[in-house]
Design a protein around this nucleic acid. Structure first.
Length: 777
DNA sequence: TCGAGAATTGTTTTT
DNA sequence: CAATTCTCGA
């Protein structure tokens, strides 16, 4: 059978166009993985290139694994030679080999978010920054976005304006120094340092350009600037770059993803060919229609429209409940009934925030429905796992101060914070690592009993190190967990929780065993010329630090899948429940006033809808507990954006949900949030409802004195651009919700003006002029 | 040094 | 509400 049997014309075109830059706009369910894998197969089978010269980059290990598997089954020989990996692991592999060229040691450690926070705490202490005035998280977020934009500490400092940014710059510099001292990289460094390396070392760049003659990038809409630069560098010579993505599924802006990468691909790679895949093979007609009618409300997108040859299918079922409990109860009951006690794996329940999973889980447990939860607390982030891994990190990399400090007194050894701080100060003053500081405790003014305790600790670690050299990974972990006294201290607790912690450690041990068993095939690494002495331990640590939640999803298990909308991208299910479809939750309160954010939420909604193959149900609750307080909210504007004729009301309490007499306090969807905290929701104690189809016009009750013309349904968010604004940069303006503020910037964004305003007490917000209805003061 | 209870704070979303 | 951090007494 030829490779292009069963492919449509567009798909074939995308598969066969192998030379030069190519952008494949692949709508949801249009068979993009298929095109990618077949393209790789074609490159090999047709003799265009050797598997060795192909690089395929994904975002998750799961996607990489699937791609590898599918290529394997398509290609007779050499599939294992294709480099299929995530962005992060690709970078790790490059850095492991060459990072010494830019002043790090090749055995570096990867810090996760926890480690980053710990490190930042130290930085705050060092720079005498009050953690109440700046939050670690915020500074880290600023640093992360800087790194995503390839802005190093120096450039950041140069750009810094004002006290806050200057402080952040100081923190960034110090944070980076400490990472370097600890011989550690954070997630963002992995990309940034690889770019730095390739820019600094032309020979290394040449090597990889020759190695990767054909490059494919999946989920291109999620790439950030650093990743873009990386790809651009690697493809710089031959320009055989094929990227696949869907701008409508760009949902990772918060993580630095830059949608411009896909929107402006042809400008970055002149002469690029563009192929659009618009035929959807996944969903029924109604589902696709619904998806189209929601996403059509976005402005910054490439023109496209999905179509299908499949039957129209059922209508979208819309349900509204009194409380979130009712919602969870109904969803679980329905699934129980509809599944017939089997086929649970054809169901997915999606939600906006992880916190929403709790109620659902409870109901699933009581009804005995098997389910699997994706996300929440990652296995490798659990305390006991992190503790054990910190031991391993200490063994592997003595400079990893964070790891050493973490386990110094875990389990309790009677070495308290006072002692540890003394060591830390001493180490800092002498420019040595914390570990070295421990070795010279007397130098730090620690003697007698305290010193003896420290000695016991360092001796133990050194013993572990000696033994680790010739010991299988799983045995090593078992030994560390036992000999350190960690297991014993858990047993002494004697609680159920301790029991499950021990089980988790056992699981880690078996994971290590299977890693070791699989890991014998090191061809990709040895051929890459990696130092042969890079111990298995280091590679294991590296592997576990790059594991994502979604990687653990088992699609064949007979279980219902519970996960966030984000986690659902790339997956498909016969029946999908989108829960918590409420204004304020989805779209979230933060996005409602910011058009860019709102569009991102809408894309997320689009992703959710297009996961469904046969049946889609959207549910919402009038009231739900959030942070210990009951919140009331309207049905999500996204539900309202789906035309009535595609929907079917399946409420149990339809009468109360559809009373037409409810107070119309819908304020155009923006401003005075119809959902608020208990007791503060604009005076009307009862939930405020207004469905677009109930009335031809919207009353802007939250904004007295102004009225907008009644938009036709479906176009309610398309605001006509004003030909001029009655305010300018520097002017003071008033917003219905945020009050007074100063206009910082006005940019003509084509269809509307994009106005940046610094609101007194609310911070800087960006808004479209047509939506914001700002009044000059 | 360490644990228990108080206080505080928070939510998107995660490689 | 719940998870995390802080404070204080032994």
């Amino acid at each position: 059978m030829a490779l292009y049997d069963n492919m449509n014309d567009r798909q074939k075109e995308a598969m066969l166009c192998t030379e030069g830059p190519l952008l494949i706009i692949a709508g949801a369910g249009s068979g993009k993985t298929r095109v990618l894998t077949h393209r790789i197969a074609w490159l090999i089978e047709s003799g265009i290139t050797d598997p060795w010269h192909i690089l395929a980059i994904t975002f998750t290990n799961k996607a990489a694994g699937e791609m590898r598997q599918r290529v394997d089954s398509l290609v007779k020989e050499g599939a294992d030679q294709v480099w299929v990996a995530t962005f992060h692991s690709t970078c790790v592999r490059i850095l492991r080999r060459f990072i010494d060229r830019i002043g790090y040691e090749n055995g570096f450690t990867i810090y996760d978010t926890d480690d980053q926070k710990t490190l930042m705490k130290q930085v705050f202490k060092d720079l005498r920054i009050d953690p109440r005035s700046f939050r670690e998280r915020n500074v880290l977020a600023a640093i992360s976005s800087a790194k995503n934009e390839l802005i190093g500490p120096d450039a950041f400092a140069k750009e810094a304006v004002g006290y806050a940014e200057e402080k952040q710059a100081e923190c960034y510099r110090e944070y980076q120094n400490r990472l370097h001292k600890n011989n550690a990289l954070d997630f963002d460094d992995l990309i940034m340092m690889t770019v730095k390396l390739l820019k600094a070392c032309p020979d290394v760049l040449d090597y990889y350009r020759n190695r990767f003659r054909y490059i494919l990038v999946d989920e291109y809409q999620d790439t950030n600037t650093a990743q873009f630069r990386l790809v651009e560098l690697l493809a710089g010579g031959h320009r055989n770059l094929c990227v696949v993505g869907d701008d409508d599924q760009s949902i990772y802006k918060f993580r630095g993803a830059n949608i411009e990468n896909i929107l402006n691909f042809e400008e970055a790679f002149p002469g690029a060919k563009v192929v659009k895949l618009e035929q959807n093979y996944r969903s029924n007609g109604n589902i696709l229609e619904a998806a189209n009618s929601v996403i059509r409300n976005n402005r910054g997108r490439r023109d496209k429209k999905l179509w299908t040859e499949q039957e129209t299918g059922e209508k979208i079922r819309v349900m509204r409940f009194e409380t979130a409990q009712d919602e969870a109860d109904a969803v679980s009951s329905e699934i129980l009934k509809a599944s017939g006690g089997i086929h649970y794996s054809s169901f997915a329940v999606l939600y906006r925030t992880n916190a929403q999973s709790r109620l659902l889980e409870e109901k699933f447990v009581t009804k005995g429905i098997p389910y699997q939860l994706v996300g929440g607390v990652n296995f490798y982030q659990r305390r006991e796992i992190k503790d054990v891994l910190a031991y391993l990190r200490t063994i592997a990399n003595g400079s990893d101060d964070i790891a050493v400090r973490r386990i110094l007194n875990v389990p309790k050894r009677g070495i308290g914070n006072t002692t540890a701080d003394k060591i830390a100060d001493f180490a800092a003053a002498n420019g040595i690592s914390f570990w070295q500081g421990l070795l010279d405790a007397p130098g730090a003014g620690i003697a007698g009993r305290a010193d003896a305790k420290i000695r016991k600790f360092t001796d133990m670690i050194e013993e572990f190190r000696r033994k680790s050299a010739d010991m299988p990974l799983d045995k090593l972990i078992a030994m560390v967990a036992a000999d350190s006294g960690y297991i014993e201290s858990l047993k002494e607790e004697g609680e159920i929780e301790a029991e499950s912690r021990i089980e988790n450690i056992d699981e880690l041990i078996s994971k290590a065993a299977s890693y070791e068993a699989e890991g014998q095939d090191l061809s990709d690494r040895t051929e890459e010329g990696l130092p042969a002495d890079l111990p298995l331990l280091n590679r294991f640590l590296e592997e576990v630090s790059l594991v994502a939640d979604i990687d653990s999803l088992d699609e064949d298990s007979e279980k219902v899948t519970l996960m966030t909308l984000h986690a659902a991208k790339g997956l498909e299910f016969d029946e999908v429940y989108m829960t918590g479809m409420e204004d304020g939750l989805f779209p979230g309160n933060r996005s409602i006033d910011d058009p860019k954010e709102l569009e991102e939420e809408r894309r997320l909604c689009y992703v959710g809808i297009t996961r469904a193959k046969r049946r889609l149900t959207m549910t919402s609750a009038k009231s739900r507990m959030i942070n210990g307080e009951t919140r009331w909210s309207n049905e999500s504007m996204f539900v309202r954006e789906i035309p009535e004729e595609l929907k079917e009301r399946a409420d149990r309490s339809a009468s109360s949900a559809f009373r037409k007499s409810v107070q119309p306090s819908y304020s155009g969807g923006y401003g005075n949030g119809a959902s608020g905290r208990t007791g503060s929701s604009g005076g009307s104690g009862s939930p405020a409802h207004r469905y677009p189809w109930e009335s031809a016009s919207f009353a802007s009750s939250g904004d007295p004195g102004r009225k907008r013309p009644a938009p036709a349904f479906g176009k309610q968010f398309q605001v006509v651009k004003a030909d001029h604004l009655d305010y300018a940069e520097g002017d003071r303006v008033r917003h219905t919700r945020f009050g007074a503020g100063t206009v910082l910037k006005i940019v003509d964004g084509g269809r509307d003006f994009e106005v940046t305003v610094d609101f007194d007490g609310h911070g800087v917000k960006k808004m479209f002029a047509g939506f914001a209805k700002l009044q000059k003061l």
